[in-house]
Computed example of a mutant assay.
Amino acid sequence: MNLTKTSLARLQGVHPDLVRAVKRAAADWKDPDTGFIVTQGLRTLAEQKLLKAKGASKTLNSRHLTGHAVDLAATVGGAVRWDWPLYDKLAKAMKAAAKAEKVPITWGGDWVNFKDGPHFELPRNLYK
């Protein structure tokens, strides 16, 4: 699958290793009926504060602020969907792409206290 121009634009300012993993996941995507888009990469502090106030984020110390995180939305027939099984599929593709690119990533869906299916980030201990 090909990333849209909007998705590519949303990768501006994101760490090149994470961009490489996202692009590899898109290139390796096999299912023509499903896919994903990039909904957000680099985020300003003002945007982060707003998301925290809405309850969409739990922190002001987000990896989005430094370009070390992306949010991806699963699509079916080109429409964004939030069904959890789609995010398991997306995570599997992202983890395989990251492994192939030798890029360590953390998936928000693996978190214990706040499951965040669309979120992928580079580990803090390896990327400052």
Rank of each mutant, 00 (worst) to 15 (best):
A25I: 03
A26L: 05
A26R: 03
A27C: 04
A27F: 08
D28Y: 03
W29R: 05
K30R: 13
D31M: 12
D31R: 05
P32N: 04
D33I: 07
T34C: 09
T34S: 10
F36P: 03
I37K: 06
V38N: 00
T39D: 12
Q40W: 08
L42P: 02
T44W: 00
T44Y: 00
T44C: 06
A46R: 12
E47D: 13
E47A: 14
Q48S: 08
Q48W: 01
K49H: 00
K49C: 01
L50T: 10
L50S: 07
L50P: 01
L51H: 07
L51P: 10
K54L: 11
K54G: 03
G55S: 05
A56S: 13
A56D: 13
S57D: 07
S57N: 05
S57Q: 09
K58E: 02
K58A: 10
L60A: 02
N61G: 12
N61P: 07
S62P: 01
S62H: 01
S62C: 03
R63L: 11
R63C: 06
H64T: 05
H64K: 04
L65I: 12
L65G: 11
G67H: 11
G67Y: 09
A69H: 01
A74P: 15
A74R: 15
T75N: 07
T75Y: 06
T75P: 08
G77K: 07
R81V: 15
W82C: 11
W84R: 11
L86R: 14
L86F: 15
K92G: 08
M94T: 14
M94Q: 04
A96K: 12
A98C: 10
A98L: 11
A98G: 12
K99P: 10
A100P: 04
E101R: 02
E101N: 04
K102E: 05
V103F: 02
P104K: 05
I105M: 04
W107E: 09
G108D: 05
G109L: 10
G109S: 09
D110T: 12
V112Q: 01
V112D: 02
F114G: 01
K115N: 11
K115V: 14
D116S: 03
D116I: 02
D116M: 03
D116P: 00
D116W: 00
G117W: 15
P118L: 07
E121C: 12
L122P: 03
P123Y: 00
